[in-house]
Design a protein around this nucleic acid. Structure first.
Lengths: 232, 232
DNA sequence: CGCCGATTTGATCGTGGTCAACAATAGTGG
DNA sequence: CCACTATTGTTGACCACGATCAAATCGGCG
């Protein structure tokens, strides 16, 4: 009996490519690890020593300049893959935003295993291609959108990605109300803005009746069409 | 005798993973195509119908908003791979910046071939992982860097990526003088700036004696250290 | 209740965008 | 080869968005 058998992301993570014998083997080289909010798993610039699957929680990928400016370059959710297989340096830090559980592998072990299991590599390739598409869409936001458009786009993306599997979501696969896993500063770091601008734009959307902010971290979308209009 | 045998990127593109029998088979499903500057190969949003390798020239990957703002989300050079394998939509347009030669495959043909050749998929995975790293580094520029820092970063990246194989490059693998494959407007679209800001920042670097601009498209780096300082 | 960090709100400033005129270069035809 | 035009790039004046600096308010927790 392996950890993997009871893993909640067993059928959504790249592991879904493996049969039960293979999963048994993978189980032997991985181990679970729990991260507290704020705790980092990988640091920008260090050699790539481990990779992981996200089992539970939300983590940020971030880079920064020498003088302390930070940019969040990605956000990962359960079933997503973390880290840089096949050598090289980690190009960004990985830090838990919520309490998180991950399934970690020594990078060299994972590389060898992947090499012997093309199905696994194929899943990883598909995931990486999707992530690249998503990242490039985000570049349009960072390069060309106004503060208002950025916030609207961000809220729409959150409403789509924060759906818990098994949760009664809206028909179109998007949440109406949800808890952000981000502080205001972290939202600013995702959108390339300052905390003050984020705050102002959110209260503006609230005053316009497009969203409601029941608590610090909660958002309720009152007028999705108007929000989509604002997203540019 | 196949096209591939004489292909200048034979040993650098993902094809390098294949032996001569395999390359023969791949040769059967691909064909060469020449693109004029400004000509597009793929359009944002259309179903992914073809993929390709770049043989010669430089191409841009771009997205835009409904109201016409454009963002260049990537630039590809000889030996780079283009397109979205394994289904889905093309998330960005692909347009030649210079005259370009590409080796195109019907997407379904390529998918099937890749499925049977894990070595090829492995190369593609490595390439995609590197591209994702590079793209994420660019997000820091778009989200957090000033106009001056963006221009400096851009020039340094160009000096590294425009090295022609076989060309007598500087020892450290970067060019001192080079021809940009971009117009001022395209530089602006890469950096998330306006054409006027690009122009002003370039003349500022020139007046500061950090670079020289011998012609519209040419750049000569006079003081690389100062340029690296300016890149943030 | 009192403290501390997070967030909101307000006032002011500066970078980079916008609009407009001008200059330089490439392209075309006599 | 040069005149003429079209395109691309540069420069200037002004403006607005979002950053910065500062203060007030909220919310969680001992």
């Amino acid at each position: 009996m392996s950890y993997c058998d009871s893993c909640v992301v067993r059928n959504r993570a790249i592991c879904a490519a493996l049969d039960s014998n293979e999963i048994q083997a993978l189980n032997g080289i991985g181990r679970r690890r729990v991260l507290e909010p704020g705790q980092s798993l990988l640091w920008e610039g260090e050699d790539s020593v481990l990779v992981a699957n996200v089992i539970e929680g939300v983590l940020k990928l971030s880079t920064g300049t020498a003088d302390g400016r930070e940019q969040i370059v990605g956000v990962v959710y359960p079933s997503d893959f973390i880290g840089r297989p096949f050598g090289g340096q980690t190009s960004h830090s990985v830090t838990a935003l919520t309490e998180a559980t991950v399934c970690v592998f020594a990078r060299t072990d994972f590389d060898a295993f992947a090499h012997d299991h093309p199905q696994l590599e194929h899943k990883l390739l598909q995931r990486t291609l999707s992530e690249l598409d998503r990242t490039r869409r985000w570049m349009l936001l960072l390069g060309r959108k106004s503060a208002g458009e950025r916030i609207a786009t961000f809220l729409l993306e959150m409403s789509e990605r924060l759906i818990e599997p098994g949760c009664a979501a809206a028909d179109d696969g998007a949440q109406v109300e949800f808890e952000l896993p981000f502080s205001r500063q972290q939202i600013a770091d995702v959108l390339g803005l300052t905390i003050e601008t984020v705050s102002r734009q959110l209260t503006k959307l609230k005053h316009d009746g497009i969203i409601d902010l029941p608590s610090r971290r909660a958002v309720r979308i009152l007028d999705r069409l108007a929000l989509e209009d604002s997203a540019g």
